[in-house]
Design a protein around this nucleic acid. Structure first.
Lengths: 153, 153
DNA sequence: TAAAGCTGTAATAGTAATCATTACAACTCT
DNA sequence: AGAGTTGTAATGATTACTATTACAGCTTTA
Protein backbone atom coordinates (compact mmCIF):
# COMPACT_ATOMS: atom_id res chain seq x y z
CA UNK A 1 0.00 0.00 0.00
CA UNK A 2 1.23 3.44 -0.84
CA UNK A 3 0.17 7.00 -1.21
CA UNK A 4 -0.34 8.28 -4.71
CA UNK A 5 2.58 10.07 -6.28
CA UNK A 6 0.22 13.02 -6.55
CA UNK A 7 1.29 13.93 -3.03
CA UNK A 8 4.98 14.35 -3.77
CA UNK A 9 4.05 15.87 -7.11
CA UNK A 10 1.96 18.47 -5.31
CA UNK A 11 4.78 19.37 -2.96
CA UNK A 12 7.11 19.65 -5.93
CA UNK A 13 4.65 21.89 -7.74
CA UNK A 14 4.16 24.21 -4.79
CA UNK A 15 7.89 24.48 -4.26
CA UNK A 16 8.32 25.48 -7.89
CA UNK A 17 5.57 28.06 -7.66
CA UNK A 18 7.34 29.72 -4.79
CA UNK A 19 10.86 29.41 -6.17
CA UNK A 20 10.15 30.52 -9.72
CA UNK A 21 6.96 32.49 -9.31
CA UNK A 22 8.63 35.87 -8.89
CA UNK A 23 10.26 35.91 -12.25
CA UNK A 24 8.17 33.86 -14.61
CA UNK A 25 4.75 32.45 -15.31
CA UNK A 26 4.62 29.03 -13.69
CA UNK A 27 2.35 27.20 -16.11
CA UNK A 28 1.21 23.60 -16.07
CA UNK A 29 3.56 23.05 -18.97
CA UNK A 30 6.53 24.39 -17.05
CA UNK A 31 5.59 22.27 -14.03
CA UNK A 32 5.22 19.24 -16.26
CA UNK A 33 8.78 19.82 -17.42
CA UNK A 34 10.13 20.05 -13.89
CA UNK A 35 8.20 17.13 -12.39
CA UNK A 36 8.15 14.80 -15.38
CA UNK A 37 4.43 14.41 -14.85
CA UNK A 38 1.89 14.94 -17.61
CA UNK A 39 0.56 18.49 -17.86
CA UNK A 40 -3.05 17.37 -17.55
CA UNK A 41 -2.26 15.58 -14.32
CA UNK A 42 -0.57 18.75 -13.13
CA UNK A 43 -3.71 20.71 -13.91
CA UNK A 44 -5.79 18.19 -12.00
CA UNK A 45 -3.52 18.41 -8.98
CA UNK A 46 -3.63 22.19 -9.20
CA UNK A 47 -7.41 22.01 -9.31
CA UNK A 48 -7.42 20.00 -6.07
CA UNK A 49 -4.99 22.42 -4.45
CA UNK A 50 -7.15 25.29 -5.56
CA UNK A 51 -10.19 23.61 -4.08
CA UNK A 52 -8.34 23.45 -0.78
CA UNK A 53 -7.46 27.14 -0.91
CA UNK A 54 -3.75 26.54 -1.34
CA UNK A 55 -3.17 28.01 -4.78
CA UNK A 56 -4.85 30.40 -7.15
CA UNK A 57 -5.09 29.77 -10.84
CA UNK A 58 -7.09 31.41 -13.55
CA UNK A 59 -8.25 30.26 -16.91
CA UNK A 60 -6.64 32.11 -19.77
CA UNK A 61 -3.89 33.94 -17.98
CA UNK A 62 -1.43 31.23 -17.17
CA UNK A 63 0.51 30.93 -13.96
CA UNK A 64 -0.29 29.51 -10.57
CA UNK A 65 0.24 31.45 -7.36
CA UNK A 66 0.26 30.49 -3.72
CA UNK A 67 -2.87 31.57 -1.88
CA UNK A 68 -1.22 31.51 1.54
CA UNK A 69 2.16 32.24 3.09
CA UNK A 70 4.62 29.37 2.87
CA UNK A 71 4.68 28.75 6.59
CA UNK A 72 0.92 28.36 6.73
CA UNK A 73 0.90 25.46 4.31
CA UNK A 74 1.66 22.13 5.93
CA UNK A 75 2.21 18.77 4.29
CA UNK A 76 -1.01 17.73 5.96
CA UNK A 77 -2.93 20.39 4.07
CA UNK A 78 -1.46 19.10 0.84
CA UNK A 79 -2.11 15.49 1.73
CA UNK A 80 -5.74 16.24 2.49
CA UNK A 81 -6.15 18.22 -0.69
CA UNK A 82 -4.72 15.60 -2.94
CA UNK A 83 -5.35 12.15 -1.46
CA UNK A 84 -8.87 10.91 -1.04
CA UNK A 85 -8.62 9.83 2.57
CA UNK A 86 -11.91 11.27 3.75
CA UNK A 87 -14.29 8.37 3.89
CA UNK A 88 -12.74 5.18 5.18
CA UNK A 89 -9.43 6.33 6.53
CA UNK A 90 -5.99 4.91 6.08
CA UNK A 91 -6.98 1.34 6.83
CA UNK A 92 -9.34 -0.64 4.70
CA UNK A 93 -11.52 -3.15 6.49
CA UNK A 94 -12.50 -6.45 4.98
CA UNK A 95 -16.11 -5.84 4.16
CA UNK A 96 -18.07 -8.91 5.12
CA UNK A 97 -17.09 -10.13 8.56
CA UNK A 98 -19.65 -12.64 9.79
CA UNK A 99 -21.94 -10.98 12.31
CA UNK A 100 -22.93 -14.38 13.70
CA UNK A 101 -19.35 -14.96 14.79
CA UNK A 102 -18.48 -13.18 18.03
CA UNK A 103 -15.11 -12.18 16.64
CA UNK A 104 -16.49 -11.09 13.29
CA UNK A 105 -19.20 -9.13 15.01
CA UNK A 106 -16.82 -7.08 17.14
CA UNK A 107 -13.48 -6.87 15.38
CA UNK A 108 -14.37 -3.67 13.57
CA UNK A 109 -15.39 -1.85 16.73
CA UNK A 110 -12.39 -3.16 18.62
CA UNK A 111 -9.90 -2.02 16.04
CA UNK A 112 -11.49 1.22 14.94
CA UNK A 113 -10.34 3.50 17.72
CA UNK A 114 -6.85 2.12 17.65
CA UNK A 115 -6.47 2.46 13.93
CA UNK A 116 -7.75 6.02 14.09
CA UNK A 117 -5.00 6.75 16.60
CA UNK A 118 -2.42 5.33 14.24
CA UNK A 119 -3.70 7.46 11.42
CA UNK A 120 -3.75 10.51 13.67
CA UNK A 121 -0.12 9.94 14.62
CA UNK A 122 0.86 10.02 11.00
CA UNK A 123 -1.24 13.06 10.24
CA UNK A 124 0.13 14.99 13.19
CA UNK A 125 3.61 14.42 11.90
CA UNK A 126 2.53 15.81 8.54
CA UNK A 127 1.05 18.85 10.25
CA UNK A 128 4.44 19.67 11.70
CA UNK A 129 6.14 20.03 8.36
CA UNK A 130 5.59 23.25 6.46
CA UNK A 131 6.33 24.16 2.88
CA UNK A 132 8.61 26.86 4.22
CA UNK A 133 11.06 24.20 5.41
CA UNK A 134 10.93 22.39 2.12
CA UNK A 135 11.60 25.52 0.12
CA UNK A 136 14.40 26.64 2.41
CA UNK A 137 16.14 23.30 2.15
CA UNK A 138 15.69 23.19 -1.58
CA UNK A 139 17.20 26.63 -1.96
CA UNK A 140 20.17 25.67 0.18
CA UNK A 141 20.87 22.59 -1.86
CA UNK A 142 20.58 24.26 -5.23
CA UNK A 143 21.91 27.76 -4.76
CA UNK A 144 24.19 27.52 -7.74
CA UNK A 145 22.06 25.88 -10.34
CA UNK A 146 19.20 28.27 -10.87
CA UNK A 147 20.63 30.36 -13.62
CA UNK A 148 20.79 27.77 -16.36
CA UNK A 149 17.36 26.37 -15.78
CA UNK A 150 15.70 29.73 -15.88
CA UNK A 151 17.44 30.49 -19.17
CA UNK A 152 16.00 27.34 -20.69
CA UNK A 153 12.47 28.55 -20.34
CA UNK B 1 -4.61 5.58 -0.73
CA UNK B 2 -5.32 2.79 1.70
CA UNK B 3 -3.84 -0.26 3.24
CA UNK B 4 -4.97 -3.60 1.89
CA UNK B 5 -7.79 -5.27 3.75
CA UNK B 6 -5.34 -8.12 4.27
CA UNK B 7 -4.14 -6.25 7.33
CA UNK B 8 -7.46 -6.20 9.15
CA UNK B 9 -8.13 -9.68 7.85
CA UNK B 10 -4.87 -10.87 9.41
CA UNK B 11 -5.76 -9.34 12.77
CA UNK B 12 -9.16 -10.98 12.58
CA UNK B 13 -7.60 -14.33 11.76
CA UNK B 14 -5.12 -14.18 14.60
CA UNK B 15 -7.83 -13.20 17.04
CA UNK B 16 -9.88 -16.20 15.95
CA UNK B 17 -6.93 -18.53 16.31
CA UNK B 18 -6.51 -17.46 19.89
CA UNK B 19 -10.18 -17.35 20.80
CA UNK B 20 -11.23 -20.63 19.22
CA UNK B 21 -7.95 -22.49 19.03
CA UNK B 22 -8.35 -24.29 22.32
CA UNK B 23 -11.47 -26.13 21.39
CA UNK B 24 -11.46 -26.69 17.70
CA UNK B 25 -9.33 -26.88 14.60
CA UNK B 26 -9.13 -23.38 13.17
CA UNK B 27 -8.97 -24.15 9.47
CA UNK B 28 -8.82 -21.79 6.53
CA UNK B 29 -12.38 -22.76 5.83
CA UNK B 30 -13.52 -21.78 9.32
CA UNK B 31 -11.63 -18.50 9.06
CA UNK B 32 -13.18 -17.86 5.69
CA UNK B 33 -16.57 -18.22 7.32
CA UNK B 34 -15.75 -15.78 10.09
CA UNK B 35 -14.03 -13.13 7.97
CA UNK B 36 -16.12 -13.41 4.84
CA UNK B 37 -12.86 -13.63 2.88
CA UNK B 38 -12.14 -16.38 0.41
CA UNK B 39 -10.37 -19.41 1.88
CA UNK B 40 -7.50 -19.21 -0.59
CA UNK B 41 -6.85 -15.62 0.40
CA UNK B 42 -6.88 -16.76 4.01
CA UNK B 43 -4.30 -19.39 3.22
CA UNK B 44 -2.15 -16.79 1.50
CA UNK B 45 -2.36 -14.46 4.47
CA UNK B 46 -1.53 -17.36 6.78
CA UNK B 47 1.46 -18.14 4.59
CA UNK B 48 2.73 -14.59 5.04
CA UNK B 49 2.14 -14.72 8.78
CA UNK B 50 3.96 -18.01 8.91
CA UNK B 51 6.87 -16.49 7.01
CA UNK B 52 7.05 -13.82 9.68
CA UNK B 53 7.08 -16.39 12.46
CA UNK B 54 3.70 -15.38 13.81
CA UNK B 55 1.73 -18.58 13.21
CA UNK B 56 2.39 -22.23 12.61
CA UNK B 57 0.49 -24.22 10.06
CA UNK B 58 1.07 -27.65 8.64
CA UNK B 59 0.01 -29.28 5.46
CA UNK B 60 -2.44 -32.10 5.97
CA UNK B 61 -3.35 -31.61 9.57
CA UNK B 62 -5.57 -28.59 9.56
CA UNK B 63 -5.54 -25.83 12.11
CA UNK B 64 -3.35 -22.78 12.57
CA UNK B 65 -1.65 -21.98 15.86
CA UNK B 66 0.03 -18.90 17.20
CA UNK B 67 3.81 -19.18 17.27
CA UNK B 68 4.26 -16.54 19.97
CA UNK B 69 2.48 -15.29 23.06
CA UNK B 70 -0.29 -12.80 22.34
CA UNK B 71 1.48 -9.91 24.01
CA UNK B 72 4.55 -10.38 21.84
CA UNK B 73 2.64 -9.87 18.62
CA UNK B 74 2.13 -6.23 17.73
CA UNK B 75 0.06 -4.76 14.95
CA UNK B 76 3.35 -3.62 13.48
CA UNK B 77 4.52 -7.21 13.15
CA UNK B 78 1.32 -8.07 11.34
CA UNK B 79 1.52 -5.01 9.15
CA UNK B 80 5.05 -5.87 8.12
CA UNK B 81 4.15 -9.47 7.46
CA UNK B 82 1.19 -8.73 5.28
CA UNK B 83 1.72 -5.41 3.51
CA UNK B 84 4.55 -5.00 1.07
CA UNK B 85 6.01 -1.83 2.43
CA UNK B 86 9.64 -2.79 2.27
CA UNK B 87 11.00 -1.16 -0.80
CA UNK B 88 9.70 2.33 -1.36
CA UNK B 89 7.98 3.11 1.89
CA UNK B 90 4.61 4.62 2.55
CA UNK B 91 5.03 7.49 0.14
CA UNK B 92 5.38 7.02 -3.56
CA UNK B 93 7.56 9.52 -5.38
CA UNK B 94 6.82 10.70 -8.86
CA UNK B 95 9.47 8.91 -10.80
CA UNK B 96 10.91 11.31 -13.32
CA UNK B 97 11.66 14.67 -11.74
CA UNK B 98 13.84 16.72 -14.07
CA UNK B 99 17.42 16.64 -12.83
CA UNK B 100 18.20 19.79 -14.81
CA UNK B 101 15.73 21.73 -12.70
CA UNK B 102 17.14 22.75 -9.34
CA UNK B 103 13.87 21.87 -7.66
CA UNK B 104 13.47 18.58 -9.50
CA UNK B 105 17.03 17.69 -8.71
CA UNK B 106 16.66 18.13 -4.97
CA UNK B 107 13.05 17.56 -4.02
CA UNK B 108 13.53 13.88 -3.38
CA UNK B 109 16.45 14.39 -1.04
CA UNK B 110 14.71 17.24 0.74
CA UNK B 111 11.55 15.29 1.39
CA UNK B 112 13.00 11.87 2.06
CA UNK B 113 14.04 12.27 5.67
CA UNK B 114 10.84 14.01 6.59
CA UNK B 115 8.63 11.41 4.99
CA UNK B 116 10.56 8.66 6.73
CA UNK B 117 9.81 10.37 10.02
CA UNK B 118 6.12 10.44 9.17
CA UNK B 119 6.16 6.76 8.34
CA UNK B 120 8.06 6.00 11.53
CA UNK B 121 5.46 7.87 13.59
CA UNK B 122 2.76 5.65 12.19
CA UNK B 123 4.76 2.49 12.65
CA UNK B 124 5.59 3.34 16.24
CA UNK B 125 1.91 3.62 17.00
CA UNK B 126 1.38 0.20 15.49
CA UNK B 127 4.19 -1.19 17.63
CA UNK B 128 2.36 -0.06 20.74
CA UNK B 129 -0.73 -2.13 20.06
CA UNK B 130 -0.55 -5.84 20.83
CA UNK B 131 -2.86 -8.64 19.88
CA UNK B 132 -3.41 -9.22 23.57
CA UNK B 133 -5.38 -5.98 23.77
CA UNK B 134 -7.41 -6.83 20.74
CA UNK B 135 -8.33 -10.25 22.05
CA UNK B 136 -9.16 -8.93 25.51
CA UNK B 137 -11.48 -6.30 24.10
CA UNK B 138 -13.11 -8.76 21.77
CA UNK B 139 -13.78 -11.16 24.61
CA UNK B 140 -15.29 -8.41 26.70
CA UNK B 141 -17.61 -7.35 23.95
CA UNK B 142 -18.79 -10.80 23.06
CA UNK B 143 -18.89 -12.72 26.30
CA UNK B 144 -22.39 -13.96 25.74
CA UNK B 145 -22.37 -14.95 22.14
CA UNK B 146 -19.78 -17.68 21.90
CA UNK B 147 -21.92 -20.66 22.56
CA UNK B 148 -24.07 -20.54 19.49
CA UNK B 149 -21.27 -19.92 17.07
CA UNK B 150 -19.22 -22.81 18.33
CA UNK B 151 -22.21 -25.06 17.96
CA UNK B 152 -22.53 -24.10 14.33
CA UNK B 153 -19.19 -25.57 13.44
C1' DT C 1 -3.84 -48.79 3.42
C1' DA C 2 -7.44 -46.21 1.52
C1' DA C 3 -10.54 -42.39 2.16
C1' DA C 4 -11.45 -37.90 3.91
C1' DG C 5 -10.05 -33.50 5.02
C1' DC C 6 -6.57 -30.01 4.90
C1' DT C 7 -2.79 -27.02 3.16
C1' DG C 8 0.16 -24.89 -0.47
C1' DT C 9 0.21 -22.86 -4.73
C1' DA C 10 -0.52 -21.84 -9.60
C1' DA C 11 -3.54 -19.98 -13.06
C1' DT C 12 -7.37 -17.13 -14.50
C1' DA C 13 -10.67 -13.46 -14.31
C1' DG C 14 -13.21 -9.32 -12.68
C1' DT C 15 -12.85 -4.86 -10.75
C1' DA C 16 -10.88 -0.66 -9.40
C1' DA C 17 -7.22 2.77 -9.20
C1' DT C 18 -3.46 5.31 -11.22
C1' DC C 19 -1.36 7.80 -14.74
C1' DA C 20 -0.76 9.27 -19.62
C1' DT C 21 -2.73 11.11 -23.53
C1' DT C 22 -5.85 13.33 -26.91
C1' DA C 23 -9.22 16.64 -27.64
C1' DC C 24 -11.55 20.73 -27.23
C1' DA C 25 -14.30 24.57 -25.17
C1' DA C 26 -13.63 28.75 -22.51
C1' DC C 27 -10.85 32.44 -21.03
C1' DT C 28 -7.07 36.32 -21.02
C1' DC C 29 -3.92 39.20 -22.93
C1' DT C 30 -1.63 41.52 -26.57
C1' DA D 1 -8.41 38.20 -33.92
C1' DG D 2 -4.78 35.06 -32.57
C1' DA D 3 -1.65 32.88 -29.40
C1' DG D 4 -1.19 30.77 -25.20
C1' DT D 5 -3.50 28.86 -21.16
C1' DT D 6 -6.69 26.54 -18.09
C1' DG D 7 -10.55 23.26 -17.09
C1' DT D 8 -12.38 19.02 -18.04
C1' DA D 9 -14.13 14.91 -20.37
C1' DA D 10 -13.07 10.60 -22.60
C1' DT D 11 -10.09 6.76 -23.59
C1' DG D 12 -6.54 3.43 -22.84
C1' DA D 13 -2.48 1.04 -20.61
C1' DT D 14 -0.83 -0.75 -16.56
C1' DT D 15 -0.99 -2.43 -12.12
C1' DA D 16 -2.96 -4.11 -7.70
C1' DC D 17 -6.41 -6.53 -5.16
C1' DT D 18 -9.66 -10.05 -4.48
C1' DA D 19 -12.25 -14.17 -5.76
C1' DT D 20 -12.34 -18.51 -7.73
C1' DT D 21 -11.12 -23.02 -9.77
C1' DA D 22 -8.05 -26.68 -9.80
C1' DC D 23 -5.03 -29.91 -8.11
C1' DA D 24 -0.83 -31.98 -5.95
C1' DG D 25 0.87 -33.32 -1.49
C1' DC D 26 0.45 -34.15 3.45
C1' DT D 27 -1.93 -36.18 7.87
C1' DT D 28 -5.10 -38.45 10.34
C1' DT D 29 -8.19 -42.06 11.09
C1' DA D 30 -11.25 -45.63 10.19
Amino acid sequence: MQMTSKFTTAVHILTCIDVFGDEMRVTSDFLSGSTGVNAVIIRNVLAQLRGAGIVNTRQGSGGAHLAKPLNEITLYDIYRAVECVDDEGLFHFHENPNARCPVGKNIHKVMDGRLSAVQAAMENELKNITLAEIVTDTNLKSAHSFYKWRRMK
